[in-house]
Write a protein that binds this DNA or RNA. Structure first.
Lengths: 205, 205
DNA sequence: ACTTTCAGTATACATATGTTAACTGAAATT
DNA sequence: AATTTCAGTTAACATATGTATACTGAAAGT
């Protein structure tokens, strides 16, 4: 196993370049809009010729949808991570924000794609991303509902609150992408205040 | 003045095609991302040749910045309109939302550009749009402060509330772009609830 | 051992792109 | 009336693009 020339089956090899294509497209689309990427440059980036591209995707749009899937996966991963380290208590918000910012730092490219293509080129993209976000909002709403039960303070409309929170969180996330890490502390504070504001306002009086 | 062949000076003519270029770019960039537009097709759309384009803009990026200016102008126009028809009272929110949705309907292309390019291609764009939005948030914060004075209910942090409100409003606005007009009523309701939630939560207890 | 499969190449194509240089003709200036 | 200015054209260029066709060679199947 510790051989230098590890053997690869043909399928492994294909899967490998497949990933390579996705990764290259991801990297490039974080610098320019996905719509402006050319099939040839993505192929070249992955070390194959243009014609070879067709062995993997029929289209640039098909590649794009693969990227959107990737986005969905990572959003679910984000939720899972956030839930795992939530210490039930008043720090839940703070810890969730920390998870989110860390996610942004590690998956910056994916997040950029999500934001950029949420409304962009094709309606297909928009719809796909939209449904990923709806799922995300729905999951968050469930969490809020659980939170409300454990604290005994019921919310008027968890789903509405979740929508507002996601809007705020993603807006701040977009800003974080353009800022050096040391400024994320300030963002986190601001975000925390805004979320608390929303939750306060959604408490049943 | 009611002549059919109204005379146009050379400068008038130039200004005319200048606008034409901007309008065409606006229209095209609402269907695809601005970064994917080509100089030639914009020129063709405006009825001139590619070489003629250079009499107006040195670059596609320069055209892009003109579009961003346009966005800024229309945001200020939106605020002015909204303020004009705000009936001081509890309907302030509802009437503002109406203004906003109407703005979206009439300036859909500009709004699409704003959203799409907020994070997209060049950092230049992002920065320009960002500063336009900051101005907008600042103005809204002032309005909220006025509102708080007239109602006697002070807000903790008007600027923070303004940020959250804009995040929510623009998110819903993005959805409105993809929905037929008759569904805007539902969006307006949802938006109204979310804004009230934020304002409630930002009241000093 | 042979044959088949197929990821990737080589090559060629028509078309679109940004940019340049030399021009045209009508409006503006003198 | 003669001259200048300049928005827009024509033409040409080097380069990038998507796509099709025939190919190569090594892995997989027989």
């Amino acid at each position: 196993m510790s051989d230098v020339t590890t053997k690869v089956s043909r399928l492994d090899k294909k899967e490998q370049t497949h990933r390579h294509l996705i990764d290259v497209a991801l990297k490039l689309s974080s610098e320019r809009s996905f719509a402006s990427l050319s099939l040839r440059e993505v192929a070249a980036g992955a070390g194959i010729t243009a014609a070879g591209f067709y062995r993997h995707f029929h289209d640039m749009e098909e590649l794009g949808l693969a990227l959107v899937d990737e986005v969905g996966l990572s959003l679910r991963r984000l939720l899972r991570e956030a839930r795992k380290r939530v210490s039930p208590g008043p720090d839940a918000i703070k810890s969730s924000i920390e998870s989110f910012l860390e996610f942004i730092r590690e998956n910056g490219n994916l997040f950029r794609l999500l934001l950029g293509e949420r409304q962009g080129a094709s309606a297909v993209f928009r719809k796909a991303i939209h449904s990923e976000m709806d799922r995300f909002i729905g999951e968050l709403a469930i969490d809020l509902e659980r939170l409300q039960q454990s604290t005994g303070k019921p919310l008027r409309d968890p789903h509405l609150a979740a929508e507002a929170i996601v809007a705020v969180v993603f807006t701040v996330g977009a800003e974080a992408l353009d800022l050096p890490r040391h400024k994320h502390v300030g963002l986190a504070h601001r975000l925390s205040e805004e979320i608390k504001m929303i939750l306060r306002g959604s408490l049943q009086k």
